[in-house]
């Protein structure tokens, strides 16, 4: 019986760890006597989240649960995952996953095992009302995920340490921030947020990486157990959408109003999100950029 060690970049039982933990339970249940996963834990108490990619690469950890943005130091191309217009099932069909997996093999020494939270997008959250997709004159807290898009909308991009975002929103140092549909309430930021801009953009997905040596060592029976759990994990899109709906209802209850763009405005808004995102991506990734854009765009 093989035992693998798994770590999540997010704290135990929080939005982006829950399904990963369920995935592990699934493997441990169906893999009795064949393969087991020892879930070591999640978040900063176990490992600096930005070191998890390297830990998977070197085999300190066998399986890691982390978004592409957390290991761009190892694989800058991981940044393109957020820009994909396809579901993971479609990507496995059209060659996009295979291309990305090859890059993971080569540069991260990892198998791109699975993707979760595939159906959850990002949003702009604001404290000042806007009536068109224009952030001119607004100070928006960014991470590298949003920088190009928000800049293209005329925002003044501001970097704020994670622990200081609440205070910064509270006293108006920043007028807004980017975040997935889910998770705002976990952080308590709903107390200092007035608006959410719809529709959402990009994919707030989390990747599950497995050390390539550990992956290669697995027998067919062991891979079978893992693969069927992966299939289950990647089928949770509808469930995730329902969870996001509930989260939106809770946001509304907490006083966050929706600013909704419709029709052509919404289309233009999304087009700008992807165009600006790809533009920045292509500038930084001349080698694999064009091919990835072709594979991931519709």
């Amino acid at each position: 019986e093989t035992t693998l060690r798994a770590v999540s970049a997010f704290a135990d039982d929080t939005t982006f760890s829950v399904n990963f933990q369920r995935f592990i339970d699934k493997v441990n249940e169906s893999g009795k006597g064949v393969i087991q996963i020892n879930y070591v834990g999640g978040g900063g108490k176990v490992m600096n989240p930005f070191e998890l990619g390297n830990a998977v690469k070197t085999g300190v950890v066998d399986i890691g649960n982390l978004p592409g943005a957390f290991y761009t130091n190892l694989l800058p191309e991981a940044d393109a995952i957020k820009l994909s217009r396809y579901t993971i099932q479609e990507e496995r069909q059209n060659g996009a996953w295979a291309y990305m997996n090859k890059l993971h093999n080569e540069k991260v020494n990892a198998e791109l095992l699975a993707r979760q939270k595939d159906c959850v997008p990002f949003h702009i959250y604001l404290n000042k009302k806007i009536d068109k997709p224009d952030l001119t004159g607004l100070k928006i807290r960014v991470t590298p995920i949003y920088r190009a898009f928000f800049a293209a909308m005329g925002a003044e991009n501001i970097r704020t340490a994670p622990g200081e975002v609440y205070t910064a929103l509270e006293r108006g140092t920043v007028d807004g921030y980017g975040w997935p549909t889910v998770g705002v309430l976990d952080l308590g930021w709903h107390e200092v947020t007035k608006y959410r801009v719809d529709p959402g953009f990009y994919r707030a997905s989390v990747e599950i990486l497995m050390n390539l040596d550990s992956w290669k060592k697995l027998s067919d029976a062991e891979r079978g157990v893992i693969n069927s759990a992966v299939q289950w994990l990647e089928s949770l899109c509808e469930e995730d959408k329902a969870i996001a709906e509930k989260e939106i209802a809770r946001q509304t209850e907490a006083g966050i109003q929706a600013i909704t763009f419709e029709g052509q405005v919404a289309d233009d808004y999304l087009q700008l999100a992807y165009d600006s995102g790809w533009k920045a991506f292509l500038e930084a990734n001349t080698e694999h950029g064009p091919k990835l854009q072709e594979l991931l765009s519709k």
């Binding site: 761009t72 130091n73 190892l74 800058p76 940044d79 540069k107 590298p144 970097r159 930084a284």
Partner: peptide
């Protein structure tokens, strides 16, 4: 050897 770069506001050679 793996040419790692840190992408935040600045791009820093790790």
């Amino acid at each position: 050897e793996s040419n790692s770069l840190i992408f935040k506001d600045l791009v820093v050679t790790e």
